[in-house]
Amino acid sequence: MNHLPQAWGRPRDDVYGPYDASYLQSRLPQAHTQSPIVTGTSVLAVKFKDGVVIAADNLASYGSLARFTDVKRLRPFNSKSIVGIGGDVSDMQYLDRLLNSLDVTENYSSTGHSLNAKNLHTYLSKVMYKRRSDINPLWNQMLVAGLDGNDEPFLSSVDLLGTTFSSPTLATGFGAHLAQPLLRKVADDESKVADVTRERAVEAVKECMKVLFYRDARSLDRYSIAVVTKEGGGVEGG
């Protein structure tokens, strides 16, 4: 007979077989988000010579159901940047509140400090990477469009793993497959951005949104499009 303390008060192994301690566990292992629920699809963006164009449709899908059809997925931040968010919509709403509180604290003092798009992208990438390291990711992919510290056009992405990526044209979700190759015809290299006009960029994005509506079953024909330049940014319904 086993006289060791860990065997006290338990059925004897030699009579009942080895004791299965897993039955004592009252808690399941902690699990966080393992898949998104209500989702938004692609976000597209193109840099041009003095700004960035960004677009995302207004649909939030629940699986294959087009659940909400007036969801704004472009989120302006302090007139210098716009964040386009794809992926889980409730996580997007959390990010929206996070940016809201950041905006509130940034505006306590009126002495002229403001976060530019580059700062904002750095911040968001830290948030996303922290969450993935906690194994509790925010299920989104974001494009941050705007101007950097030198008022140059800025465009960069961050995803649920905290991975960041920069390019003159960017597209998330289905758009990464369908729109990105088309957008690269506009500018496939940083050096070409200087030759892209605003009209050309807007036209390319609109064309891609159309292609996506035709090919992506989780997309919608109503979308938001925004242009950020030195003169400020504005979101339009489409």
Partner: peptide, 11 residues
């Protein structure tokens, strides 16, 4: 005015 809740993305 009507403010809506923080994080609201639709109407």
């Amino acid at each position: 005015g009507e403010l809506g809740v923080d994080g609201q993305v639709g109407s």
